[in-house]
Amino acid sequence: MINSTMRVRIARPSRDLAAAERFYVEGLELDILWRTTERVSGEHDLLMVGPPGGAWHFELTHDPELPLEPTPTVDDLFVVYLGTPVDDALVERLVAAGGARVAAHNPYWDEHGVTVADPDGYRLVLCSRTWGA
């Protein structure tokens, strides 16, 4: 049975793992949990980022031999509930690390936070509310 203690991995293709790393590690300050260190023919290059000891992480993949083009929509969101107002310095750091501040498709997110597109176009929402609020 699925429960709240189980680990979650979210996997996404990326055009450029170095750009994704800058955004999520330098910008959002997640840790590198694992990455491939050498190119192996027939295998994907991988970068896993997340909070240390967390129950979730992103696996960003790139296959140089058969690359996939990321196809994010305006509703492909990764929402972080901060529980405090969004720090302008965090948004500036994300933009400096390759992100782009964008208007949310759903006005709720603009009312309660800031949306930043990552280098592949997927949207990170920094929400000032707490979960369930």
Rank of each mutant, 00 (worst) to 15 (best):
P85R: 07
D87I: 11
G132R: 11
S41G: 11
T73G: 11
R101S: 07
L33Q: 00
R35M: 01
H62Q: 15
G53Q: 07
F58M: 08
V74N: 11
N3W: 07
Y122N: 05
D63Y: 10
P13C: 05
E43G: 05
L66Y: 10
W34P: 02
T5E: 15
L47F: 04
I10Y: 12
D118G: 02
T73P: 04
F23C: 02
A96D: 06
R101W: 04
R101N: 06
G113F: 01
T5S: 14
V8S: 07
H44I: 15
V8P: 00
E92V: 06
E65R: 15
P64A: 08
M6W: 06
S41W: 10
G99D: 01
T37P: 01
N3Q: 09
E26Q: 10
G132M: 09
W56P: 06
D16P: 03
A89S: 14
R22E: 04
D63P: 02
R7G: 13
L30T: 06
E59S: 02
H112Y: 13
S14T: 00
A20G: 05
R7T: 15
V114I: 12
D118Y: 05
T71F: 13
G83E: 09
V125I: 14
N106F: 09
E92F: 07
F78N: 05
R101C: 05
V40G: 01
G27L: 05
G113D: 02
G83A: 07
E92L: 09
P52D: 08
V40K: 09
L60N: 03
V125R: 07
G42I: 08
G98M: 04
Y122F: 14
